[in-house]
């Protein structure tokens, strides 16, 4: 059997299974976006590009998309830095490393929607733990969900708590498989740990870092549970994100056709943005002569 047989044997089972599962939902979403399926009219008529035109001028939707710059980009960056620090510490070796490693992974194991309710019980102003602690040390309490800065803060805290372990584990995987030679060479040269980190570890980690950042960008752009429970998109609409917007249109109002249009728009925008981000990150982290 030729190499081509094996080549296909590796890729095709997974790829075809995936396509088989997603092809109908994708086709259906595209088809339905050209229909007028809504709560009082289920079915696939054809209304041309009406939904697409409406999407184009839907200021609320695009406002929600812009908020991803805040939620997606900022939380991912913070998670990357914290996750890298933790992974690097474990990789270098710390006392009771395995215990810490296990504890740090626990947040990832909690179910986001249930954890969001726990966060609500922490940040609810009247009976929550956060204000309870503030009161017990004599500080004034904070309107966690009703003022915009604290509201953002609580969502950040919930997201960073939950997802930094993902970065940590992903990056730890990368660190564990780094080749040894460059580090041995650096040791022989008498390079300082800081210098080794910036000159060797970080560049070698570039591909896996980009992988981790991209997947977190994808995931954190879908942020929903913490916003739904903690602020209900408020105050006003200050924390309304695309997923939240899509959820309301699709599953609470059953604007199926329009929801599908928005979803496809979101998909296209994300593909474009992620491709550009990947390019930019690769460019920044390209090997320099040194």
């Amino acid at each position: 059997m030729g190499i081509n047989f094996y080549k296909r044997l590796f890729l095709l089972p997974g790829l075809l299974l995936l396509i088989a599962i997603i092809i109908f939902p994708l086709l259906f979403s595209i088809r339905v976006s050209f229909s007028s399926w809504n709560v009082s009219r289920s079915g696939l008529d054809f209304v041309g590009g009406a939904n697409w035109a409406r999407m184009w001028s839907d200021a609320d939707f695009w406002g929600a998309m812009l908020r991803l710059l805040n939620f997606g980009v900022v939380t991912t960056s913070i998670q990357y830095i914290l996750g890298f620090m933790l992974a690097h510490y474990v990789w270098q070796g710390i006392k009771s490393g395995r215990l810490f490693r296990l504890i740090w992974l626990v947040p990832l194991m909690t179910t986001p929607s249930i954890m969001a309710i726990v966060w609500r019980s922490i940040f609810r102003e009247d009976i929550g733990a956060a204000n309870g602690l503030l009161k017990s040390v004599g500080l004034s309490t904070i309107g966690w969900s009703t003022e915009i800065v604290p509201a953002m803060f609580t969502i950040y805290v919930a997201e960073i708590w939950q997802w930094t372990p993902f970065m940590f584990l992903f990056l730890l995987a990368g660190l564990l498989i780094l080749p040894k030679e460059p580090f041995l060479a650096a040791e022989i040269d008498g390079s300082s740990p800081t210098r080794t980190f910036w000159r060797i570890t970080l560049p070698l980690m570039a591909p896996i870092s980009i992988g981790a950042i991209l997947i977190r960008l994808i995931e954190s752009s879908k942020i929903f549970d913490s916003i739904f429970v903690l602020t209900s998109a408020g105050p006003g609409n200050a924390t309304e994100t695309p997923t939240y917007f899509l959820w309301k249109r699709s599953l609470t109002e059953f604007q199926i056709a329009y929801g599908a249009t928005l979803a496809l728009t979101y998909l296209i925008v994300m593909i474009i943005v992620l491709t550009i981000v990947a390019k930019v990150l690769t460019y920044i982290s390209r090997p320099r002569g040194w």
Binding site: P242, W247, Y266
Partner: peptide, 12 residues
């Protein structure tokens, strides 16, 4: 495949 949030894939 992970880009789309599950809420919009639910009905399909």
């Amino acid at each position: 495949q992970r880009i789309l949030p599950p809420v919009v894939l639910a009905i399909p």
